[in-house]
């Protein structure tokens, strides 16, 4: 199993092997938000695994959703004189002071999975996914999959007004723009939950002639997709065949559905933010060459062709 984890990590961390030996004696502090979701837990696990493989001494601090805890942890890291600091920021503002302190102590800071509102001179780089791109990858898959056939899509949005809901919708719409055979017939919020995803999908099916007119459902996260799959089954239709299912996040449960042929594609929000971060850090420490201010993680597409059962087994161990 460990081997598969390594392979997954390697997929996004390009020059990992080359840099491993070099960073043998690095100490890095990591201020994590907490463990509010399965994805967050997986990010922590992957970061620890990455550090272990590279021989980095990782000092981990769980902020339990509080910025004051994060700032306290970062000050602690500065006092300990670590070589670098990773922060998964819980909010976007209020970081200037503590980042200045790190800069004065000459400790590079790398942000993970979220951007902040602060001068970019205060941190080395930010490693995040591109939510618009995620939506686009999902849309591109659908465009390719349906070809020229007409396709009525229903969309399960995330929580109304949240940035993943706005961006993932935008990216998907960009992908299907110019393909007039694909139309979004209905779009409603499923609040990122299974229960609401199922309830909203039920109403879509009723509203669209018992679901026979629906060609695909696009869900802003896998949990809503899992709920939608159940709604489709209970309406007497076959998810994955009668109605295609494409979603984002790549949490383990969607791979079970894919293995059963009930889901078609998912776009990974990789929990491996630390890999690219460590790469950039090691390159920076080696020849003082600052990386770009934004490192975009790969939004990998998984389909039924990618041995979903094996991916499920690999992911299951990450703490999702």
């Amino acid at each position: 199993m460990m081997k598969i984890v390594t392979r997954l990590a390697a997929a996004s961390a390009l020059s990992m092997l080359a840099s491993t030996a070099f960073a043998a004696s690095l100490t890095v502090g990591f201020s994590q938000i907490g463990s509010e979701s399965g994805w967050r837990a997986a990010e922590t696990t992957v970061t620890q695994n990455q550090a272990k493989e590279r021989g980095i001494d990782l000092k981990f601090a769980d902020a339990q959703q509080k910025q004051e805890n994060q700032i306290k942890a970062v000050r602690g890291f500065i006092a300990q004189g670590v070589d670098a600091i990773l922060i998964a920021p819980v909010v976007a503002t209020g970081w200037d002071d503590v980042l200045k302190e790190a800069k004065e102590a000459d400790i590079p800071v790398i942000l993970l999975d979220r951007q902040i509102e602060a001068p970019d001179s205060l941190y080395l780089t930010a490693v995040t996914s591109d939510q618009v791109h995620e939506g686009k990858v999902a849309g591109d898959w659908l465009v390719k999959d349906v070809g020229a056939k007409p396709c009525k899509v229903v969309e399960l949005q995330g929580t109304t007004g949240s940035s993943p809901a706005i961006n993932r919708k935008k990216g998907f719409e960009q992908a299907i723009a110019g393909h007039s055979n694909i139309t979004i017939a209905r779009s409603q919020t499923g609040d990122f939950t299974r229960t609401k995803g199922k309830e909203v999908m039920e109403s879509f099916i009723k509203a669209e002639g018992g679901g026979k007119d629906i060609c695909a459902v696009y869900a802003h996260n896998d949990d809503m997709a899992v709920g939608a799959i159940q709604a489709i089954k209970e309406a007497g239709l076959k998810p994955g065949t009668d109605i295609k299912v494409v979603s984002i996040d790549a949490v383990p449960d969607i791979f079970l559905a894919m293995a059963a042929g009930e889901a078609n594609a998912t776009v990974e929000l990789t929990p491996n933010m630390a890999g690219p971060a460590f790469d950039a850090l090691e390159a920076y420490l080696k020849d003082k060459k600052a990386p770009a201010k934004w490192i975009q993680t790969e939004s990998k597409l998984y389909t039924q062709a990618d041995d979903p059962k094996a991916v499920y087994d690999a992911k299951k161990g990450l703490g999702y």
Binding site: D191, T193, R194, T195, K198, V226, D253
Partner: peptide, 14 residues
């Protein structure tokens, strides 16, 4: 009922 409905227990949202 909600747990049986989605074949899972979602402690955050149930």
């Amino acid at each position: 009922i909600v747990t049986a409905d989605i074949h899972g227990a979602d402690a955050n949202n149930a």
